[in-house]
Design a binder for these strands. Structure first.
Lengths: 340, 340
DNA sequence: CTGAAAGCGCTTACAG
DNA sequence: CTGAAAGCGCTTACAG
């Protein structure tokens, strides 16, 4: 491969001029720039990112920390983020931390971050205190999705409101005995999604003057299996709920399965609503509050670009409310027996 | 942050010695090495990967090309690969090519590859001719999963045999009218999985002297939705099949849905077997031929490491047969009406 | 076993 | 608008 020297020689200019011309910097005359571009094209010149990084201190790489790749929500976040990053000429370094939770198998370390990434995107997982400290010490800009940590920009929907929307949908249909299946809010301090969705549920129940039966508020892991188990417990109750608000579509699908296995008809015997609009939600006829992970990923990168290029353009407001939307399908309906 | 000069000064040696000592190279006395390590630790020294890359020509980054993140199979591959890469001190650059298929929105380009990755892992997707040429021209070592391309090491299960196992399971149960729902084998030349699985089906049908009804061999996209649509078509036949071999668990789940919607009981009216052992397979009671994507990802990296460090150790045989295993659950049984 | 020196291929003030 | 030169922070023969 050719180097910047070859291009400089071919174009009859200095390497400094080649560098400026190729990067579109000002202070290069148009004829010169054209000559440089032509020479570079002819030589199939490609800048060595490694040399450029050493000289400039920038890598044009963003580290993306993500707990699970396989989940619909995270895959959408990454896809959205990766798309915008590419538009800006950035690359994605996958920062695999093993899994979420405190028993992190492979915490972020200086070897991974130092001079390797310009910034880090934290996707809906709790960082360890040591990791937060490390990022601060290294001065790495961070934008998060779903995790509120002092001083870092955060992209997230209003989980309380989204949960209120879901719960109110059930209440408006006439349900009075509404259960909630959510995630364990004690696991992560900064990922408040489970707690927020539960708060939205409780607030709405209060607004409609509905009793919250503690046996109808279950905590489980954020999976189809978790929803299944929780659903079975709900159906075993002496007076089972007539409706369930699940904190995610995956949990909701599990509840649907439990209902089916338990011989309950949906929505006649049990209404179920989730949050997400998972790719299989339509498939299950699942009513849900849609959110848009790819959009959230895009927005996180927009904000990150503003952080990396301050003053470059009108900054994206990091407190822009993110959209969500109730989608009613066939898993929710009026209760067959009207409210007692 | 401190540089190698700081460490050299603190340890009272040259930067060359620091470099050798830190990388565990020979020709450094133990006392010297100890002194260097201590100084480096005290200064919290971290090697600048960017400077090391410029000097050595190695990046310790592997590009991973993947068509879909959200799918269970690909997420498993990446997880397995990322784990082993980290063990070897390599990082993962996510090479997002938009999607699979010929209408690739963002093909691999020299800017992404050149001096940015030491090697590329191609995960079960067809590369464009231009991309293959590019990788060859750049001299980038490539290992693939599931894609046979001349000259590149390839990790994959024996898809023909796996399909034979699945089909034989149905035949042994006494099914005679066995359908197959697979992927479109014309889409990708080098990803032979759909064609191989269909070949395994056909070969087994012949072995058991069973007729292959062309109306019972359907092509669809590799998704739950695709399986659903195909399943509906099968059930609309005047004489529907009593069993379906789906080329993947996701397709199989779609067929299960179609059966349920069509009022058919599984397995009484219809047996369904897939391939994968998807995380939801147990959930659906789906009989399947399990494969192990994380293991495949691990093995691909093992081979890649041998390519990058020839002679470093006994190379992993790239033709090691990969394991698969029939798992019988509740979606398959003897046909209720014995074979005509 | 150890060091001096060249070199990797850029970018960036600084001068002009 | 353009160039000479320093510098980014390592690794790698080469000598000793």
């Amino acid at each position: 491969m050719s180097t910047i020297h070859d291009v400089a020689q071919a174009a009859g200019v200095s390497t400094a001029t080649v560098s400026r011309a190729l990067r579109g910097l000002p202070r290069v005359s148009e004829p010169t720039r054209a000559r440089v571009l032509r020479a570079a094209a002819q030589l199939h010149y490609v800048v060595s990112p490694t040399a450029a990084s050493l000289a400039s201190g920038k890598t044009r790489v963003v580290g993306v920390v993500v707990p699970y790749l396989a989940r619909w929500y995270f895959a959408g976040l990454i896809r959205g983020a990766a798309t915008v990053l590419r538009e800006h000429g950035f690359h994605v370094l996958l920062l695999d931390v093993g899994s979420a939770g405190a028993t992190r198998s492979h915490p972020l370390d200086p070897q991974t971050l130092w001079k390797r990434v310009d910034a880090v995107l934290v996707l809906s997982l709790e960082l360890l205190a040591s990791e937060r400290e490390l990022l601060r010490d290294l001065g790495v800009p961070v934008v998060t999705v779903g995790v509120e940590v002092d001083g870092w920009d955060c992209v997230r929907i209003d989980d309380v409101s989204a949960a209120e929307t879901a719960t109110a949908h059930l209440a408006e249909l006439g349900h009075r005995r509404i259960a909630h299946v959510g995630g364990d809010e004690s696991l992560d301090v900064h990922v408040t999604t489970p707690a927020d969705r539960r708060a939205g549920y409780e607030r709405t129940m209060a607004r409609y003057s509905l009793d919250v039966d503690p046996r109808c508020v279950l905590v489980t892991d954020w999976t189809v299996h978790g929803g299944w188990r929780a659903g079975e417990r709900l159906l075993e109750l002496a007076t089972p709920p007539t409706a369930v608000f699940a904190a995610s579509d995956e949990i909701a699908m599990g509840v649907l399965f439990a209902a089916r296995r338990g011989g309950r008809r949906v929505p006649e015997d049990l209404s179920v609503v989730g949050i997400d609009d998972h790719e299989l939600a339509e498939f299950f006829g699942l009513s849900t509050v849609a959110q848009f992970p790819a959009l959230q990923g895009r927005m996180a990168v927009d904000i990150l670009m503003d952080v990396l290029n301050p003053g470059h353009r009108e900054p994206v407001a990091s407190n822009t409310p993110l959209p969500y939307e109730l989608i009613v399908r066939s898993s929710t309906a009026r209760p067959v027996r009207p409210a007692e």
